[in-house]
Write a protein that binds this DNA or RNA. Structure first.
Lengths: 117, 117
DNA sequence: TTATATACATAAGAAAATTATGTATATTTG
DNA sequence: CAAATATACATAATTTTCTTATGTATATAA
């Protein structure tokens, strides 16, 4: 029996695309399931990206021109690899900066001491 | 003509109640408009809480038992002061801790260097 | 062989904002 | 002094972005 404190629900809103794009920036080329697993591992189970959130986000980012896809077959199973387009590479930097600034402002607003992490 | 980079829209989602409760924790007793102005000032115009977001949030927090209200008249104009209930005082600490943890995880995920703010 | 993991996708519903609208008083400015 | 702006509340319609549920299918571990 576990008690799982997952803030993925409320606080994650608005930062999912940033996380996804950062992973692609770091690893060049990834497929959906891989992203969920890596984020799960990196966050020590604290950020669990659901499929219902991930796939629509990936499709939206592709429609916005930030991602391109290549389909690959592993045996009979399909895998859809996503990678950043040039405009996606610009966008991810913007998003990361924006998030860093947001964190900085929130630290001020919430009066968190500089080394509270 | 200005260019206003406001992340209040996307990133703020899920953290509005935390901000509001933190302000009440710090100042004891505040009315809605006062909260918007203080946060605006503190954040250097970066976090602009809209009325359509604030008032429903305050009403919800009151319904959840975290806030109580006192109505005051300034001349003929009404002012509704909110303050934390005992359970609200507990809750705000939880919320701040949760946010700090979230920031810490995001710093890891987004590979932000410790002093990037 | 059965459960679990991998791998995609979409639809219904909920939560929490934005934007728009409404009401009213107080103050500043031209 | 009139008009614009600031103060102060509130709610409704809409949008965004999740969760939860459902669906399909293959691969692997127990």
């Amino acid at each position: 029996m576990y008690i799982c404190i997952m803030y993925s629900s409320e606080l994650l809103k608005g930062s999912l695309k940033t996380i996804v794009m950062q992973q692609l920036k770091e690893h060049g080329k990834m497929y959906g399931y891989e992203i969920t697993q890596r984020v799960k591992e990196l966050s020590k189970e604290k950020i669990l990206i659901t499929e219902g959130a991930l796939y629509p986000a990936l499709h939206a980012l592709e429609a916005e021109g930030y991602l391109t896809t290549e389909t690959e077959f592993i045996g009979k199973r399909v895998r859809k690899y996503y990678s950043l387009t040039p405009s996606g590479q610009t966008k991810v930097l913007e998003k990361i900066n924006e998030f860093a600034e947001f964190m900085s402002t929130m630290k001020l607003i919430l009066q968190l001491q500089p080394n509270s992490n």
